[in-house]
Design a protein around this nucleic acid. Structure first.
Lengths: 248, 248
DNA sequence: CCAATAGTGTCTTTCAGACATTATAAC
DNA sequence: GTTATAATGTCTGAAAGACACTATTGG
């Protein structure tokens, strides 16, 4: 058994010194990465950071980091902390995407990551324009990718996140999290149409939202032009994501 | 094996002799656990193993283990290896469930696991009836749980797996993986009904399967009694899980 | 013949999508 | 009044579900 430890350590000696698992094998590092999506100017955008350290120094990457056992109660809280620290975002919608792990994604050796998927309203964006302002930016998502070449396997993680968003738009209330707390039904329909990439019949859309029963009207109105103002809605308190009976 | 137990205990008593991550924080251990489900005697059952080491010695647990960076190309391959080594199962349907990680699930400290979800046909079961035959067993799933108290947070992982199965049965071809390679449509309908817990109209069920277009008839017939024999089908070669347009 | 289950056809009700109409604002 | 968009109503074709009917075997 000890020979197994020796063998593993020797092969890895040039990379980094890692602890052996209780069964004697080398132990891969694990991280948490977050795909933060928003709608700005009617376009789906993702938050990326430029790496200041090797590997992939200078390349754009998803915000991510190591788990802090002392601070993070669980994986979700680690993801929220990363969102807070790296992007200054406090109250997003967040869900776990899935794990990615293999020997190739990091040149230093076998690593794994728990990828998360967050949606925020563009009015919640308070990007820290501080010391490293140039290193954080929103990039437009074109198809399932962005223009720059991403570090690690982050292009694959991004594609996976966008696929999940597009999929869930069809049958859940997820897109409300891309809007501010108060919005109109035409606003919401526009978000669905933007992500789906097709027009939706107004009547059918409203029927679906009404029977899903997750919105409540609030006093006040919104007026953009000389026409009838739209009713303002917000999500009913305490409701999780709603799954529709049928697709949009 | 006993030395391994001893070593694990020693480690634990030293309160976390773990490598520090590159950012200086302690680095949590990560494992892969697999929820293996099958239908036996018309009942949903899960494969459990009795733990021979601390923590939770003597308790039933999901098959799982550490990643072997030298052997496992990626997370999926690690899960398949565990399935092969611990349950002797070679060619199952397998998909990632999600990650579970927090400070409470393991008394030794902060750990995380990539949970997997596998479906196998009961005729593929070749449980190794060897030295530790008493330590591997199928347990009937009642609701989302099993009778014994499980180690770690494995009850939560099991519940999550059963929920995903029940959910996916509604709109995918997943249940075919609970049947042998060749089966009849009445067989398949029975599986759907068993997992859904309700009857399905024969005509509607066949329409759905026909338009999903993932089955092909093979020569031969199956006869259980003095009645009309049923056509035998198998999955069309190279097809992944089919998502139905509508729910069952 | 009968019993039992496989497999197909028909009918009715429901509902999604298309489209029309009314409502309410500014000017 | 006109214009523009919000909001609701109506109509029609498609299809899902309920149910009936036919097919094929053993006894």
């Amino acid at each position: 058994m000890d020979s197994r430890v020796t063998k593993a350590r020797t092969r890895r000696s040039e990379a980094q010194a890692r602890a052996a698992s209780p069964d004697g094998y080398a132990h891969p590092f694990v991280t948490v990465d977050v795909v933060i999506l928003t709608l700005r100017d009617g376009r789906l955008q993702v938050l990326l950071m430029r790496r200041g350290a090797e590997p992939f120094r200078g390349k754009w990457a998803l915000p991510g980091g190591y788990i802090h056992p002392e601070d993070d109660g669980d994986l979700d809280m680690a993801a929220r902390r990363i969102l807070r620290e790296k992007a200054g975002i406090e109250t997003p919608y967040i869900e776990q995407l899935r794990g990615f792990g293999n020997a190739r994604r990091d040149p230093r050796g076998w690593t794994a990551t728990f990828a998360y998927f967050a949606l925020i309203a563009s009015d919640e964006l308070v990007l820290k324009e501080g010391a490293n302002a140039e290193e954080v930016a929103w990039w437009e998502v074109e198809g399932r990718r962005v223009k720059p070449v991403l570090a690690f396997d982050h292009a694959e993680i991004l594609a996976s996140a966008v696929a999940r968003l597009r999929s869930k738009v069809e049958y859940t209330s997820l897109p409300v999290h891309l809007l501010p707390a108060k919005f109109t039904l035409p606003d919401l329909q526009q978000v669905y149409e933007q992500i789906l990439g097709r027009r939706i019949d107004k009547s059918a859309f409203r029927k679906r939202m009404a029977e899903a029963d997750f919105l409540e009207p609030v006093a006040g109105e919104r007026r953009h032009a000389s026409n009838r103002p739209a009713q303002i809605y917000r999500i009913k308190h305490g409701l999780a994501t709603i799954f529709f009976d049928r697709t949009i």
